[in-house]
Design a protein around this nucleic acid. Sequence first.
DNA 1: TTTGAAAGTGTTAAATTGACACGATGTAAA
DNA 2: TTTACATCGTGTCAATTTAACACTTTCAAA
Lengths: 252, 252
Amino acid sequence: MDKELKKVNQNELNPHVSVDCVIFGFDMEKLTVLLIDRGRNKSDKGIKLALPGNLIYNNENLDQAANRVLDELTGLKDIYLEQVAAFGNPDRISKDSDREWLKSIRAEPEARVITVAYFSLVKMPDYLPQASSFAKRAGWTSVTEINELAFDHYEILQAAKEKLKQKIKIQPIGFNLLPEKFTLSQLHRLYESILEKPLDKRNFRRKIQNLEIVTSLKEKQRGVPHKPSQLFVFNEERYRELTENGFDNFDF
Amino acid sequence: MDKELKKVNQNELNPHVSVDCVIFGFDMEKLTVLLIDRGRNKSDKGIKLALPGNLIYNNENLDQAANRVLDELTGLKDIYLEQVAAFGNPDRISKDSDREWLKSIRAEPEARVITVAYFSLVKMPDYLPQASSFAKRAGWTSVTEINELAFDHYEILQAAKEKLKQKIKIQPIGFNLLPEKFTLSQLHRLYESILEKPLDKRNFRRKIQNLEIVTSLKEKQRGVPHKPSQLFVFNEERYRELTENGFDNFDF
DNA sequence: TTTGAAAGTGTTAAATTGACACGATGTAAA
DNA sequence: TTTACATCGTGTCAATTTAACACTTTCAAA
């Protein structure tokens, strides 16, 4: 291959590899995920919701690509993304509606594409999704309400959920989903949403407090029509301490 | 793209995506990994050892590709492979010796390649590696002796080791590395090799036996110059029972 | 003032963990 | 045949962790 040609290629889209992002949020009730709406086609059929994702460039690595694509499609910048897995069934673009849609946005719509999935956790209220590029809309959907998605995105979402379940047992990453100040009930509900099983309230609170990973404020919840709860902040220092000494046991 | 052309492409190598396999073994002393030797180039320089891996075909999925490539390069057939992660730094083929080598075996040696890594565990003595294709030799190397490998394979190996560490705490997959009949000391050494830390002998044995995941035979070790130890077999039924009821706690 | 709704709190029995040392049993060498 | 060597196999106890379980408190709104 010619060297000049090669240099040009470096800044070109790679039509064979894409990244998809599973961005989780928490609305204080349940786990949500950020989806884009591809809008209506002529046909007005097929699934319209998809994970934000797109092809990579030849001169960026996978992590960079995931961040760029997420920014381009939703406006989310510089968030921590962790890889879930690669997906590459030859028939992952087999649905008619998906092929139609690809024709409208890709130079090589029939190419076989491998996609690398990423996941992340963000504070929902910090961020109101801004659709752009081919995303007609971008918004949060409750994870439990999702039955199908474009391409193999439903499968990817399930894999990301599993990864999150595992990860939250090892590291207290859940705090990324909550506001600065939060209550232990909110944290409790968050863990139940992620693990998809009930956790005993008293045992949960005891465990969290023994870990000393939260610091209680003098402040209380206001304006709630019931006993207001204590507010807490996440203790980052303690978190570093725990992770450096290798802690295996944030298990519920 | 023309439909005829497309069908032809389906059976062609995809020059942009490869798979690499990290196959672990255990020689009763330490953890080993299966590497291929690329043999000597004209230059006779550079690193010669690499993980078995190669490009995928357009009509196979990633898991199939990993199995095929492993078979082609080493003769290992139909073993369970689990994905580790995708690796795709644009400069992962930056070493001169690697580029030279690729020129000799690939149609598009300068193409940017994303690789998907897999890992597996096999019983070493069941299998004497058979080199073939571009692998001049294939053989087992002790994991601790490896300092560098071709491409980004050293990084991939580290990631696979981490995955194995995590996984063995959740599932008793270690049994795949041992012969049918084994001693608790061997199992003990295996766990220490994988976790890279000493485990108290009595506590280890207690934990394993409480799980009832091994069944003791009437048989003993023979011909060893010391007290012969009891032989055990892995209890598959009990394993299924444990995994179905979801067990989180094979923790050491 | 009453009502509704979620917050917050403690005990106990059972299971699990971690720390720790020595006698038993086989082979091989003297 | 005795001895030396190497590894096997075993038990207890204190400390910690877990699971199960129900009632009172506090605020806002009616």
